[in-house]
Design a protein around this nucleic acid. Structure first.
Lengths: 214, 214
DNA sequence: CTTGACTTTCGAACTAGTTAGTACATTTTA
DNA sequence: TAAAATGTACTAACTAGTTCGAAAGTCAAG
């Protein structure tokens, strides 16, 4: 019958695995770990369930691979932002906007993290790859804060991890809680105007917090 | 009707339902909608699975009842805070601290909301009870902002829903992302010292944001 | 180019355990 | 008596993971 034409099969293990991971990412992000169906993932793949178990061993193994891949992707994108030649305030704003844009562009990642939290980060704990991560962000923030403080732009001595949390919280929440928040307040958080306002808002808030002292 | 203190006979529908809801809340919060097991809930109850279906019809029905109950509980606790005789700044700080304490004290609620977001708030949409909620908070915030602005304490004209989101984001994130954040940064967000610092931090951030204008 | 060991892929039926939901009988209450 | 509440045992469907048996691609050495 149909479409796939000849059975011109090529062995491309990398592509097969990537294909599975891509489909699985969406499935897990949409349905959660328990809610996702291996059969459903297999069907949407260009390969079969057999292959999923061939490469990933189990549903949990697949989930963990999905999680690791998502984090690895960030680490790559979280490029060295060349903040050192910017003023402390400009550097901070750039950093914040980058976080904002990242979360906005990667709702699947945000949801995977939410799911992982529901499971008490149990899988993340087992993955060494993920644990030693994000440390670089903290060092970057620490540097910017120090610079700002010694220049007298920032009057408040703040903990870099706290600042990172404040930024993450805002950016993450907008995406993770988009649906309940949108339902209750009848406001579409993914709308361009709202998004732009929020993007500036979190930056203004953090900056004014660091500049103030009371 | 009446007294709960009676020599309760075996039939006590209210208590049975409440018992089921209590157990189910924890189970759903811990395992998610798909991950929760009706049999597991039944076992932890002083009644049986039969009763779950008798009162709630289905697993989803039970989940929805749990969700509604959680929201109703907040509305009750979210008492009129008597903010009108406080200065705008003090009123805002009180409001923020109340939100902070609420989320901190109700991790199950926070997780249910997270779960509901994973499901695109589909159940919440079907529940009229939940939708027309939280409007009062916005009105409260709007009042405080207006007062502060006209008194010249707040120099920035901000949208009350945006401000509510900023507060919610911070308070919610600390609880919802406690595990992944804690794992990555090796920091226990439920520790007393950290908690106290964050409690003041979000208040300072919002206040300084409203006082600034650049 | 050929050979042969090894890896990758296909597929589809099968199973063993689980799980949401039910039938039916029984007890309690009004 | 009727209606509401409860207990026990069941089932029909689902689902993660397997089994068996291939066939086709890859790669290095001869």
């Amino acid at each position: 019958m149909a479409g796939s034409g000849e059975n011109g099969r090529k062995n491309d293990p990398k592509r097969t695995q990537e294909d599975i991971l891509l489909v699985a990412t969406e499935e897990f992000a949409t349905h959660g770990l328990a809610g996702a169906r291996v059969d459903a993932i297999a069907e949407k793949t260009r390969t079969s369930k057999r292959m999923i178990y061939y490469y990933f061993g189990s549903k949990e193994g697949l989930y963990l691979a999905v999680l690791e891949r998502s984090y690895r992707k960030i680490r790559t994108l979280e490029a060295d932002l060349l903040l050192s030649n910017l003023s402390p305030e400009a550097a901070l704003r750039t950093l914040i906007e980058t976080t904002f844009d990242h979360d906005e562009a990667n709702p699947d990642f945000v949801r995977l993290v939410s799911i992982e939290n529901i499971h008490h980060a149990a899988h993340m704990l087992r993955s060494e790859a993920i644990r030693d991560l994000n440390v670089s962000v903290i060092e970057t923030i620490a540097g910017v804060l120090d610079r700002g403080f010694s220049q007298g732009v920032f009057r408040r001595r703040a903990d870099p991890i706290d600042i990172h949390m404040m930024i993450s919280a805002f950016c993450f929440f907008r995406v993770s809680n988009r649906y309940t928040f949108g339902t209750i307040f009848r406001r579409d958080l993914s709308e361009a105007a709202t998004m732009g306002r929020h993007r500036g808002m979190i930056a203004d808030a953090v900056v004014s917090y660091l500049k103030s002292d009371d």
